[in-house]
């Protein structure tokens, strides 16, 4: 009898982190950031640029274009210089063997209300699941994380689900 079965990448220490909420962080939505985001995508709808057009369409101010969920307040002491968000609190529990390559697997955003310039969002994130699969690139670890965004009134306005692939 051979024992060729591949060892699971997912450890008990990793499983123990599932569902643990991060510390909250603050994201601002302002007219400048909405316009910059819309311009970078190539949006042509004036609601993303002209506040009068936005109000005429029924928004409180410039609405967030799809995919834009505010800009984290940058703090040189704690923010990541490449991505702008909060630096991780450390590497966290590691899989049973080192995985060096990372791919962005996918993004889902679910909206529950409008998000407009002037809003201040508070986000927390947690790991929702770890899975492993073997594909053309070999054994992969798939991490699904959920980030919940609340507005200044405490209402959940969006949930982003991100899928990261490490191999």
């Amino acid at each position: 009898m051979t024992q060729e079965a591949t060892q699971s990448l997912i450890t008990d220490e990793m499983r123990a982190t599932i569902g643990q909420e991060s510390e909250p962080w603050t994201l601002e939505v302002d007219k400048l950031s909405v316009r910059m985001f819309a311009r970078s995508v190539g949006h042509t709808d004036p609601v993303y640029y002209d506040e009068a057009a936005a109000k005429a369409a029924g928004y409180r101010s410039l609405p967030c274009p799809p995919g834009y969920l505010g800009t984290p307040i940058f703090n040189p002491a704690t923010s990541d210089s490449t991505f702008g968000g909060r630096r991780g609190a450390g590497p966290g529990p590691q899989p049973s063997r080192p995985l060096t390559r990372i791919l962005n697997g996918g993004t889902e955003i679910e909206y529950f209300d409008d998000i407009c310039a002037g809003d201040v969002l508070t986000a927390t994130t947690h790991t929702a699941s770890f899975e492993e699969r073997t594909g053309s690139i070999g054994q992969m670890l798939i991490t699904t994380s959920k980030t919940v965004y609340k507005n200044q009134n405490g209402k959940v306005v969006a949930i982003m689900t991100g899928t990261g692939i490490r191999y």
């Binding site: 949006h43 709808d45 369409a57 029924g58 928004y59 274009p65 799809p66 996918g106 679910e110 909206y111």
Partner: peptide, 20 residues
């Protein structure tokens, strides 16, 4: 998101959009 927004306009809303 732009593809869907340009179709929906501002009288409807995107409730969810996802891609891999």
């Amino acid at each position: 998101g732009q593809l869907v927004h340009d179709w929906v306009g501002n009288t409807g809303r995107i409730k969810k959009f996802a891609c891999s």
